[in-house]
Nucleic acid binder design. Structure first.
Length: 827
RNA sequence: GCGAGAGUGGCGGAAUUGGUAGACGCGCUGGAUUUAGGAUCCAGUGGGCUUUCCCGUGGGGGUUCGAGUCCCUUCUCUCGCACCA
């Protein structure tokens, strides 16, 4: 037998064996507790990167551990297969997106298999398959029927690089989440999911997730949903019967509202100035503003500007005429896209008023001061008593918020309301490689859904992808031209495709019954497996995917498909893999290729280092030296077993009392079992679990040095237990050594070891002896030794004596098994 | 500005309930083995001062017999949001 550790041959051997016996296949089994472990599935970009390796290794440890703990573990893998890179590849190298995608899937699947992950591959699917997206089209139609899908012409984020619109969540710091280029607002016909109908529920349920989700993610979602309570106020446009509606959280300042600001995208911006002297100026201003990209428009340095529309509206409580302005800082997206301007008590309005010489009326006086609109240096945004506010004068402004609102209610000019920052999810994309939206445009019947029995609407494959920005499907006559499902007349299909975040919003439920033919899910399977007990993925999806998936789960419940509201009971967001202080990227040239690592060090060493270098939620510094350390440890482990194989196999483990000389090793073993079990199960701290097992290996080397043949019983027991505990981390070498030790069962089918609490107890402990809180000696005493004896021993330490010679003892604090602190003052 | 998190050796990190700071690994040093190198095994490794001691967890203050851990204050960094009316 070769004594060298050779990961290459070991790893392929066991991967093949696991595959042959379908070790990872799982079926619902109601006699066993279930555990659904899921990692965020990858986009088939071509090759696995270190982020995947880290993510999936963390998941695999937990999946394997839970299985050994007796759980029926669902651990699936698949492909988030629609998306732009496939289309870009098609443009660049004339490969059909479908071919490109499936070739990547094949390659990456192979790479994942080389890492030894315990996936039930029989459940694998790609979301670009009609067998998958047909159900999504069905959901779309059913959502349409329930009013959860609608079409609207509105201003939306447009990425000029990707030639498509983006949902709000998909704009990061004014840039496209995918390509990082500038985003503009552009008017478009779009399909929307009415996620705002679930805003309240999405927010409320966050409370129920607090046990299992990181606070960071929850607060990001809370923030994104952005609930705020306020008042809707209607201002009549002078000499018309039309109103402008605004949302405000400060109705208490209404008497100080002296003008009105509209977003450039506001529908009234176009119409209000018609026929006035301001018409041209308004047109120019709006056109100019709309050409500015989102990043610039939201930057601090962007100058606040506006233009008068030539029209006025009426303050409902004062009756004064308020000039209506278009202002570039008013967000079209928030509230009603119109703001009542109170320059005395809002800094932006103040600056705007000074710039355009608009009246400033103070309506809140802080205690002990008298502010004057004429001389005001900046807006006063704090609390105080109302002035210039008619019957509300003298009222604390906090109280006036409610009082003014109910007054508005009385005069039918406004009401209390709840406003959300969250907008409806724009889901149409002007791209090819996505699921077709199952709608048909008929001149007679309008826009109508296709018949459910006609699903799936299959994405046409005979197309040419030019990259001109016009959807390739629109060029496929055979696809576009159809008959109306209502009247049977000539009609045209919708040519936008669905946002690819729709696919990832329900794939985790499909995994429960991935091959079900008649319906999207087999409900009994879903009832058994869902929710996902542990979800693992990157923090970058804190809002995007995780919010969409929560929304979709609620919708599917309301459509009657499933019974639960929240899909992911526990969430772990793993940190990034960093090298040389920066995220790995081609441009920085600091990319580590997992495949090369596997070739050099093996999958086990690669997995081990990913787990050992940092706790999972933290960013992890990649170190070329570090993985060598992990590889070295595996070599050390290998030699521990192979060098002593004969002694180990000859040893008797038949449960008799271990020899005195092995007691400390046996204690170490049980302490290690306890530590590793807690670290995996309660803390998700794999780095410390590994450190504990390294300590055990170090102890085993020492124990082996002087071991007699009787001693090898305990060593054998320890080695066997160690191999079991290591197997979720480094499954291949563990399996090989397990077999070497004469074991027949697969490790995954072997029970996780239990620790014996009695063997975890130290019989002797080291007690620190402090004098006035400073360490002066350590003494070894029997566990739970009484205070009197510990004091006696402490006092007899020469260093302790020395310090107490010139002092008198005031007090002694004794914490059993830990510390004795002698408080003494000088004589 | 708001929200969240983090600051510990040369480096990655540990310290789970307020009780010996620095586990484990990397790196470094020494020894054994070796013709040599590599690999391996063993030992040492926070700083200072010729050493029974002093200092040390970003800084300052506090609570306590005792603080990396709790409280106040301050600085720095990372991430997220950011004209939200």
């Amino acid at each position: 037998m070769s004594t060298d550790y050779n990961p290459g041959s070991i790893e392929s051997k066991w991967q093949k064996r696991w595959d042959e016996i379908n070790l990872f296949k799982v079926d619902a089994d109601r006699s066993k507790p279930k555990y659904y472990l899921l990692e965020m599935f990858p986009y088939p970009s071509g090759r696995i990167h270190m982020g995947h390796v880290r993510n999936y290794t963390i998941g695999d440890v937990v999946a394997r551990y839970k299985r050994m703990k007796g759980f029926n573990v669902l651990h699936p893998m698949g492909w988030d297969a629609f998306g732009m890179p496939a289309e870009n590849a098609a443009i660049a190298s004339k490969i059909h997106p479908k071919k490109w995608t499936y070739e990547n899937i094949e390659y990456m699947e192979n790479q994942l298999k080389k890492l030894g992950f315990s996936y039930d591959w029989s459940r694998e699917f790609a979301t670009c398959a009609p067998e998958y997206y047909r159900w999504e089209q069905l959901f779309f139609i059913e959502m349409f029927e329930k009013g959860l899908v609608y079409k609207d012409r509105t201003f939306l984020n447009w990425c000029d690089q990707c030639k498509t619109v983006l949902a709000n969540e998909q704009v990061e710091g004014g840039m496209c989440w995918r390509c990082g280029s500038q985003v503009f607002l552009k008017e478009h016909d779009q399909w929307f999911f009415r996620i705002t109908r679930y805003a309240e529920k999405l927010l409320d349920n966050i409370e129920t997730l607090r046990q299992g989700w990181p606070e960071r993610v929850l607060s990001m979602q809370r923030n994104w949903i952005g609930r705020s309570t306020g008042t809707l106020i209607r201002f009549q446009i002078e000499d018309t019967s039309n109103d402008i509606e605004v949302f405000t959280t400060r109705p208490d300042t209404l008497f100080g509202a002296t003008f009105m600001s509209l977003a450039p995208e506001h529908p009234l911006s176009k119409t209000l100035s018609r026929g006035t002297a301001q018409e041209d100026a308004v047109q120019r201003f709006v056109t100019k503003t709309l050409q500015v990209d989102t990043l610039t428009r939201t930057s601090d340095l962007y100058e606040k500007e506006g233009v008068f529309t030539g029209k006025y509206c009426i303050n409902p409580v004062t009756g004064t005429r308020m000039p209506i302005y278009i202002a570039n800082f008013v967000l079209y997206d928030y509230g009603t896209g119109a703001v009542m301007a109170v320059p005395s008590h809002d800094q932006r309005d103040f600056e705007f008023a000074r710039k355009y010489d608009l009246p400033i009326i103070v309506v809140i006086q802080p205690e002990g001061e008298t502010l004057d609109g004429e001389t005001l240096q900046c807006a006063y945004e704090g609390e105080g008593l109302l002035v210039n506010s008619d019957k509300f004068n003298g009222m604390p402004n906090v109280k006036a918020i409610d009082e003014v609102t109910s007054y508005l209610n009385e005069i039918d000019r406004g009401s209390a309301t709840v406003n959300f920052r969250l907008r409806d999810w724009g889901i149409s994309r002007q791209r090819y490689w996505g699921a077709p939206i199952p709608m048909v445009h008929c001149e007679k019947c309008g826009t109508v859904p296709v018949k459910k029995e006609d699903l799936p609407i299959v994405l046409p494959e005979d197309i040419e992808i030019s990259g001109t920005g016009i959807s390739p499907i629109a060029q496929s006559d055979s696809f576009v031209n159809t008959t109306c499902p209502v009247c049977g007349g000539k009609a045209k299909r919708e040519t936008d495709t669905l946002d690819t975040f729709v696919e990832s919003s329900w794939y985790f439920i499909r995994y429960c019954s991935p091959n079900h033919k008649d319906r999207p899910f087999d409900k009994s399977e879903v009832d058994y497996w869902m929710p996902v007990d542990q979800y693992i993925g990157g923090i970058e999806h804190a809002i995007l995917h995780l919010l969409y998936a929560r929304f979709f789960t609620m919708v599917l419940r309301d459509l009657g498909y499933i019974d639960l509201e929240e899909p992911f009971a526990n969430l772990l967001t793993q940190g990034m893999v960093i090298k040389d202080g920066a995220k790995m990227s081609k441009s920085k040239g600091n990319v580590v290729d997992p495949e090369k690592l596997i070739g050099t060090y093996g999958a086990d060493a690669t997995r081990l280092f990913c787990l050992f270098a940092a706790p999972p939620e933290k960013d992890m510094d990649w170190s070329d030296k570090g993985i060598e350390g992990s590889y070295r440890f595996l070599g050390r482990l290998w030699r521990l077993v192979s060098d002593s194989k004969d002694h180990l196999l000859a040893a008797d483990t038949s449960g008799s009392e271990p020899p005195e000389s092995m007691h400390s090793l046996k204690r170490k073993l049980h302490q290690t079992i306890r530590k590793v079990t807690d670290d995996i199960d309660k803390r998700f701290r794999f780095n410390t679990a590994i450190a504990a097992m390294m300590e055990l290996v170090n102890d085993l080397y020492r124990a082996r040095e002087s071991a007699s043949s009787e001693d090898f019983g305990v060593i054998r027991e320890a080695v066997n237990t160690l191999i079991i505990m290591l197997s979720p981390f480094v499954p291949h070498i563990a399996e090989e050594l397990w077999a070497l030790m004469g074991n027949k069962e697969m490790l995954l089918n072997t029970a996780w070891p239990e620790y014996d609490p009695q063997w975890c107890e130290q019989i002797e402990t080291t007690v620190a002896v402090q004098i006035n809180g400073k360490l002066r000696a350590t003494i070894t005493v029997a566990k739970d030794e009484g205070q009197a004896e510990v004091e006696r021993m402490a006092m007899s330490e020469s260093n302790v004596k020395r310090f107490l010679e010139e002092a008198s003892i005031k007090r002694i604090i004794y914490v059993p098994n830990k510390i004795i602190n002698i408080i003494a003052v000088p004589l």
